[in-house]
């Protein structure tokens, strides 16, 4: 069945409308970051103005942008690598050797995401403090690994389920032990799935603010903490806050843009047969 012309027009309009609505805040933030503080609060809002890079210069003077970027990269990539390394054997076991508890186990793993993080803030804070992991990248990597582990396990499990069990069994008959099966058969076959799981985990932990705000101060502060540092003490300096925010999302935006093909393919993997 072919959709009518009018229908396709409406769908196109709707699609563009949703896309613009989602893009607008980001675009406005970028625009504001190039305004002076006075232009930034002008009413009605200015669409045309003399752009300035002053905000960016000041943001770099007031805070340690490079340090925050490095912390964000270390924490998000570190926790993702660790999370995937831990989740791979778990997902492999559940996908290819299921038993009657597998379904329950998967649900239990997911259920840990349903608890509000603030519920365990106190114990985690105290544990971090007494182990000396407060305000360290190691501490935050550990927390982010655990926070994202359920999602990583679930995604990998779903991707592994798509691989015919016969192929794994054939490799077992061919003499492959568990590690060889994962390394030589599973890894290449589930490659796109593993990559998109990794990308999602990186983005999730890049955007994560709750734990990084509560468990870091100076040394391990990632970009989320860097932005917050601009929002309260600086009051309502919208232009500088926009500049800081633009700087914070820029690396992950570029990263996401470069890997979007992989990401889309991974997330729709198995949806279309």
């Amino acid at each position: 069945m072919k959709a009518s012309f009018a229908f396709r027009i409406w769908v196109s309009l709707l699609g563009w409308g949703v896309a613009l609505a989602m893009f607008f805040p980001v675009a406005w933030m970028v625009l504001t970051s190039f305004k002076t503080e006075i232009d930034a609060v002008a009413t009605p809002p200015l669409l045309f103005f003399h752009p300035t890079l002053e905000n960016y210069a000041q943001v770099n003077q007031l805070g340690d942008y490079a340090g925050a970027v490095w912390n964000s990269i270390a924490i998000s990539f570190g926790s993702t690598a660790l999370g995937i390394a831990l989740a791979m054997p778990a997902a492999y076991a559940m996908a290819f050797f299921p038993n009657r508890w597998t379904k329950d186990l998967l649900l239990w793993i997911l259920s840990t995401k349903m608890m509000p993080a603030v519920g365990v803030l106190m114990p985690i804070y105290l544990i971090s403090k007494s182990t000396g992991l407060l305000d360290t990248k190691t501490g935050l990597i550990a927390i982010m690994t655990l926070a994202n582990l359920p999602i990583i396990v679930w995604m990998l499990y779903t991707f592994f389920k798509e691989i015919p069990g016969d192929i794994i069994e054939a490799s077992r008959m061919d003499g492959a032990g568990a590690l060889a099966q994962i390394r030589i058969v599973l890894l290449p076959l589930a490659g796109p799935g593993i990559a998109s799981t990794g990308l999602l985990a990186v983005i999730l932990s890049w955007n994560e603010a709750f734990w990084s705000l509560n468990l870091t101060a100076v040394h391990a502060a990632p970009l989320t903490a860097f932005i917050v540092a601009f929002s309260s003490p600086q009051g309502l300096f919208w232009a500088k806050l926009s500049a800081a925010s633009t700087l914070a999302v820029a690396p992950i935006l570029v990263f996401g843009w470069m890997t979007q093909r992989q990401l889309v393919r991974g997330l729709t993997f198995g949806a279309v047969k």
Binding site: P164, D166, I167, E169, A170, D174
Partner: peptide, 17 residues
């Protein structure tokens, strides 16, 4: 374990890599 039994299997689905 199957990898140590020294048997080879041909599957209905071929199960090639």
């Amino acid at each position: 374990t199957p990898d140590r039994r020294g048997l080879a299997m041909v599957f209905q689905s071929y199960a090639l890599y």
